[in-house]
Design a protein around this nucleic acid. Structure first.
Length: 835
RNA sequence: GCCGAAGUGGCGAAAUGGCAGACGCGGAGCACUCAAAAUGCUUUUCCGAAAGGAGUGCGGGUUCAAGUCCCGCCUUCGGCACCA
């Protein structure tokens, strides 16, 4: 063994640990991924990985995400682009705070320790980040621009405070955005979310609902279809009409939203959301019996949580208000009921009920024995009645209008138009639309976040902190009780809270809430343009040069929240004149998750695989390669199904091939072995297509094929000194650098080059080498392959047909059957169809 | 319930309507070795000794030709879920 090591270079062995140690410091000096040189003339590209939350060391999921992001980033560098590929930390937020409370530490120390650890792991993992572009959202240098943006929004009327029933997590003791309530549970801690009436800050996302929805069309083809669909559903635009109903004994009419104004003649009652102000007002003048019934019902509704509300088979409940509405289209008197199946914060919190043609109204009518009136007739198979009152099944689709006066005989679409026209004429209604999307609740009653830059003055009300007083720094956590108690811990920092009003100089108090951390991540991609600037959030000129992000990479978990908010911010910044584009992320790749034995890894499940241990065992390159080779990037990887050992084996094989190359650095490739040259250039063509199409697994497979061809070249007739062998080995090193940067760099050195394989440049395929002179034609009988021939590429249809017809195998397959048709697709195929 | 995606060897997976299973894992065999590891080579969809036949969730259809396109099912996964 020792003897071997001391002998020729050709007997060196692949040692990934030594290779890692050798190249890491070299790269630190070389900085191959610096994107900040103003004299750099390469075309620009912006590749962005979603930044991590510093909750500990990097895990397998990060390992996949950054391996894949690196493939893309490094690919464009090899293709000659000046790629900006920055990294940062989304370091504010509840988990840091909760962990800090649990351990009795300052969230600051805990957070920054984790960042240091993740940073070191990223360096070891050879992420191609530009380490001069780093941001940390909990740095005041970053969050002061959150505050600046908040005030920009505020001045435009896009940030406002209102009192309403908000989602409340009793465990986190803070409010949650609509988007953070998942199946009625807190996204963070899975506690049952309840409702609480509070005055909170909101961003007016609903002002942008139409644009957020319509502009999704411009992303079609560049974003995963799944994400576009989820965003569309989330925004949830529905077209319909607002219809005014007079209320007996009330001056103002009540407006309801309906998508089916055509069924107005079928309305038999009205329902008002139990927890709405309108409901309380309507029962105000009713008898004490009704009032008592209502109070009891409202109490019950408030007690119920979203889990109960969400049960679809839940029986309908409600109480009669004692009041009546007048149907504007036919003057009929409709009883007004109160129920929790109508939501206070959608539409107008009140509906017209058409039980014959709406499942929920039908269920309610059945439960309360209310009338059901058919106005849409649908065809039945046996010609029997389609009246829901008879069949017990409401019909919600298209049909022909009946019992509807002037609408009779019309179909749904025409009837909707006609009904809206009728209403418009009498001034009782108009065409409108509604959104599922609600305004974004951004205040949080927690410590570890961006302070809201507002001062509350008894005389002046809400007063924005003047721009020259930003940032409003988060006070030290020392002496503050961070434990959740329903109000912000910042309230306890007396020195910090008590200020003088910037307007009138009287004693005033700071707003003690902090911002949702999704504010931080809504614009961070712009901050990377000048992460250390103290004079501006981001430079306009650089935004023009670099932004929007050309390629965004991250998990599908952010398909709604983060992406929607970032899109909203981008549109607002556009309207404010800060940027000239309206969508932040041109292309989006969602990588899958890394599972173990079929399920998500977790400590409690006992199937946790540690990234650092995998790296120790197999080496960085093998793990990165395994992530890329496992399958399509958007699919989940079950770690139990993949083979990092196999990846390591392949890397050693590639490395040995480079080690065997014996030609000089400057040989002329054109004199090399033709067959191997063709394999190399076929690879160049196919590899480019695979990577640009995100088929990284296929790209790796092609690379393996080239290494196999290279091995054959070295061991076969070409030999290690053939120029084609060097050409192939160099292409392997350069392509391999996307997946296995250490091994590739070492191969590059073995091949006699200076460090920097990442920047070596992956050439275009020489298509002249790919021209075929002959090919294999297949001959089929009735679609089954019966014979194959080597044919010249320019063989005529007639010749190929002759060849097939005279083949013994073909004749045998045809037998005594009669030939019906012969299809010839020269030079590849003949198919003989028999009768 | 509504919307969407996907079903291919023992496994991860390939396949512009034109040779299904590239590439790899695992398995089997051979070479090297005293032996093992490592490495290299061969083989590996199923049935069949072979000739041959069958085969991409199931049932139909279009086509000279279907994993791929169309219709209807089944299953799995994901999203939404009283949104009027």
């Amino acid at each position: 063994m020792t003897e071997q090591n001391n002998s020729a270079a050709a007997e060196r062995e692949y040692d990934i640990r030594a290779i890692q140690e050798k190249w890491l410091p070299v790269w630190d000096d070389l900085k191959p991924f610096d994107s900040g040189n103003p004299s750099d003339t390469r075309p620009k590209k912006y590749v962005l990985d979603m930044f991590p939350y510093p909750s500990g060391d990097l895990h397998m999921g990060h390992g996949e995400a950054y391996a894949l992001g690196d493939v893309i980033s490094r690919y464009w560098v090899q293709k000659g682009f000046n790629v900006m590929h920055p990294i940062g930390w989304d370091s504010f937020g509840l988990p840091a705070e909760n962990a800090a409370i649990k351990r009795g530490l300052d969230p600051r120390g805990w957070t920054y320790d984790n960042i240091a650890q993740q940073r070191a792991s990223m360096r070891r993992y050879a992420c191609s980040f530009d380490w001069d572009r780093v941001l940390v959202t909990s740095d005041s240098m970053y969050y002061r621009w959150n505050q600046w943006l908040f005030l920009e929004f505020y001045n435009k009327g896009l940030a406002y405070r209102k009192n309403s029933n908000v989602n409340w997590c009793p465990s986190c003791q803070t409010v949650l955005a609509n988007e953070q309530v998942v199946q009625g549970l807190c996204e963070r801690c899975d506690s049952l979310v309840t409702k609480k009436a509070l005055t909170q800050w909101y961003f007016k996302v609903t002002d942008y609902a139409d644009r957020l929805l319509d502009d999704l069309d411009t992303l079609e083809g560049n974003w995963p279809h799944k994400v576009l669909t989820m965003q569309r559903n989330w925004i949830g635009r529905s077209y319909g009409a607002d219809v005014d109903f007079e209320i007996e004994g009330r001056n103002e009419p009540v407006t309801v939203f309906t998508t089916r104004p055509d069924t107005l003649f079928g309305a038999t009652f009205m329902v008002v959301a139990a927890d709405s102000a309108l409901a309380a007002e309507l029962v105000e003048d009713s008898g004490s019996e009704i009032k008592a019934e209502f109070s009891a019902y409202l109490e019950m509704v408030k007690q119920s949580n979203d889990i109960e509300r969400l049960a679809t088979d839940r029986p309908k409940t409600g109480v009669f208000t004692g009041r009546f509405a007048i149907n504007p289209i036919n003057g009929e008197r409709l009883a007004i009921w109160v129920s929790d199946y109508v939501l206070a914060d959608y539409g107008h919190g009140a509906i017209m009920a058409v039980p014959a043609h709406d499942q929920r109204d039908f269920d309610f009518a059945k439960a309360m024995s209310l009338p059901i009136k058919q106005v849409v007739e649908v065809a039945t198979e046996d010609g029997s009645s389609s009246d829901p009152a008879v069949t017990g099944v409401p019909t919600t689709g298209d049909g022909v209008m009946v019992n509807s006066g002037p609408l009779n005989g019309l179909r749904k679409a025409e009837a909707i138009d006609a009904a809206v026209e009728l209403l418009a004429k009498s001034g009782k209604g108009k065409k409108t639309k509604n959104f599922r999307l609600r305004d974004w609740l951004i205040s949080r009653q927690r410590y570890w976040g961006t302070p809201i830059p507002i001062i509350h003055c008894d005389d002046c009300g809400e007063v924005p902190v003047p721009a020259n007083q930003l940032p409003v720094e988060l006070p030290s956590a020392e002496g503050l009780d961070l434990k959740p108690k329903g109000t912000s811990p910042l309230g306890g920092a007396a020195d910090w809270v008590n200020v003088t009003c910037p307007n009138c100089a009287k004693p005033a108090k700071r707003d003690t809430d902090t911002m949702d951390t999704f504010v931080d991540s809504s614009w961070y991609f712009l901050r990377y343009l000048s992460p250390n600037s103290t004079t501006e959030a981001f430079p306009k000129e650089a935004a023009r040069d670099w932004a929007p992000v050309d390629q965004y990479v991250g998990g599908v978990t952010h398909a709604i929240l983060h992406l929607l908010y970032a899109r909203f911010f981008t549109k607002v910044l556009h309207d404010l004149g800060h940027i000239d584009f309206e969508e932040p992320f041109t292309r989006l790749l969602n990588q899958g998750m890394v599972l173990m034995d079929g399920s998500a890894m977790s400590k409690s499940r006992g199937n946790l695989v540690r990234l650092s241990e995998q790296l120790d065992e197999h080496g960085v390159d093998a793990i990165r390669l395994t992530m890329a080779f496992a399958g399509p990037p958007e699919d989940d990887i079950d770690w139990a199904d993949v083979s990092p050992g196999g990846s390591a084996k392949f890397l050693a094989r590639a490395w040995r091939a480079a080690n065997d190359v014996s030609s000089a650095t400057m040989v002329d490739f054109t004199s090399g072995n033709k067959e191997l040259r063709k394999a190399t250039h076929t690879f160049l063509r196919d590899f480019t297509a695979a990577i640009e199409g995100f088929k990284f697994n296929v790209g790796v497979a092609k690379l393996m094929e080239l290494v196999n061809a290279l091995r054959k070249g070295i061991d076969g007739s070409a030999g290690p000194a053939d120029p084609a062998v060097r050409e192939a080995a160099e292409v392997v090193a350069k392509a391999l650098s996307l997946f296995a940067p250490y091994t590739a760099e070492d191969m590059w050195a073995l091949l006699g080059h200076q460090p920097g394989v990442a920047l070596a440049g992956l050439q275009e395929a020489d298509t002249s080498l790919l021209v075929e002179s002959s090919t294999v034609a297949i001959a089929q009988v009735d679609g089954k392959v019966r014979d194959k021939f080597d044919v010249p590429i320019d063989i005529s249809e007639g010749e190929l047909r002759e060849m097939a017809m005279s083949s013994e195998a073909i004749k045998r397959a045809i037998g005594d059957k009669e030939i019906a048709n012969v299809i010839v697709r020269a030079p590849k195929l003949v198919n003989i169809a028999t009768k």
